[in-house]
């Protein structure tokens, strides 16, 4: 029997999982290296997904069918890849605990991390307890309740878009793409939980470029009465009863705006994960902002400039889950093409 080709997949998030499954289907032996003790990556942080409010857990379980018990897939947990390099046509991954993995090709699916909102000190994250991030909102929502730190239901909640995205001061010039729709989704979730409360979304541009996004936006206005304010919050402060005071400008009315809310949710942006930055730098495929750079965004988006190293998912740029899963499969096809050529 001919020797099976082997592929290393770094990161068992949605992109890595879907790539691994497709490769296994083609009878390629896949080793998935995951730095955490479980698979799923960032999907574990979400409760429900836009645009259809599907339970993230459900999506995950259908995603991992034929992944966990696949004889062609070996999943290794708690393996953080510290070095990835090409040696004699083989890809070699060294992990932090000193283990070495070898394969014919490698897929980088190291994904993203969320922006650390503490860099925007003026917004008060980490200083005022009722200023939270969108990820923390998801966690609360998973437990079925959105409560302030005092344990009460927020009567007023505000969401602020573009925290850590479209911000040259923190070095991120790009749009993270998912925060606008996530804010709409979370505002609806909040209003469904507490119809009596008010929800405000502070935005610069509402970017609803996805199927059913605009409809969701419309629904949030019409059905839930979410109020949209065009302006970026500049500063927050805290009252003695731990409410959050917001300073912004209602740019449509050209008037300074002040309001007090019980909770402020920062829609934090997407940044390249540390592993993405480190591993792509090692292989000279690093692009702007620490993301990995694909060979050609139109025709070879899963190829990198390094032969045999492929890119899948949001290690390249901010992507939605839908796109990420598709991109994983697409990466698998590129790998198969490559392995056929190299025989």
């Amino acid at each position: 029997m001919e020797n099976k080709k082997t592929v290393l997949v770094i990161g068992a998030g949605p992109a890595g999982i879907s790539a691994a499954k497709s490769l296994a289907n083609d009878n390629i032996s896949v080793t998935v290296l995951e730095k955490e003790d479980t698979f799923g990556g960032n999907i574990n942080n979400w409760a429900k997904l836009f645009p259809n409010f599907k339970d993230a857990g459900e999506v995950k379980s259908s995603l991992i069918q034929n992944f966990v018990n696949n004889q062609n897939i070996k999943i290794v947990y708690n393996k953080k890849v510290t070095e990835l390099k090409k040696h004699n046509q083989k890809w070699i991954a060294n992990t932090s605990d000193g283990e070495v993995f070898e394969s014919d090709a490698a897929i980088l699916s190291t994904g993203f991390k969320v922006f650390d909102a503490q860099y925007k000190e003026e917004l008060g994250y980490g200083i005022y307890p009722n200023v939270i991030t969108s990820v923390e909102f998801e966690k609360m929502y998973k437990n079925g309740k959105i409560l302030t730190v005092q344990g009460s239901v927020p009567k007023k909640i505000a969401f602020l878009n573009c925290v850590g995205s479209r911000d040259e001061k923190v070095g991120n010039h790009y749009c993270s793409r998912i925060c606008c729709i996530a804010a709409v989704k979370q505002a609806i979730e909040f209003k469904e939980l507490y119809p009596q409360s008010e929800a405000f979304i502070f935005y610069m541009d509402i970017r609803m470029a996805g199927q059913f996004y605009e409809e969701l936006y419309r629904k949030s206005q019409e059905k839930h009465g979410v109020v949209y304010i065009r302006g970026r919050i500049s500063e927050t402060s805290s009252t003695i009863d731990k409410k959050v005071q917001i300073k912004a400008e209602d740019t449509l009315a050209a008037t300074p705006l002040r309001m007090t809310v019980d909770m402020l949710v920062l829609m934090i942006g997407v940044e390249a994960s540390k592993s993405t930055t480190i591993l792509s730098k090692q292989n000279n495929i690093d692009g702007p902002y620490g993301f990995a750079k694909s060979k050609d965004i139109h025709t070879a988006d899963n190829y990198s400039n390094e032969n045999g190293l492929f890119l899948a998912g949001s290690c390249k740029r901010p992507l939605t889950l839908t796109e990420t899963i598709a991109d994983g499969k697409s990466a698998a096809i590129s790998v198969v093409e490559y392995l056929k050529q190299t025989k």
């Binding site: 065009r230 500049s234 300073k247 912004a248 400008e249 008037t255 705006l257």
Partner: peptide, 23 residues
């Protein structure tokens, strides 16, 4: 400039009067 209004929101003078740099 994308007219986001962050400047006019934080403005020290706008605390006192209706000055709006963005505008």
């Amino acid at each position: 400039c994308i007219m986001c209004g962050m400047c006019s929101a934080t403005c020290s003078a706008a605390n006192h009067t209706n000055f709006n740099f963005r505008l």
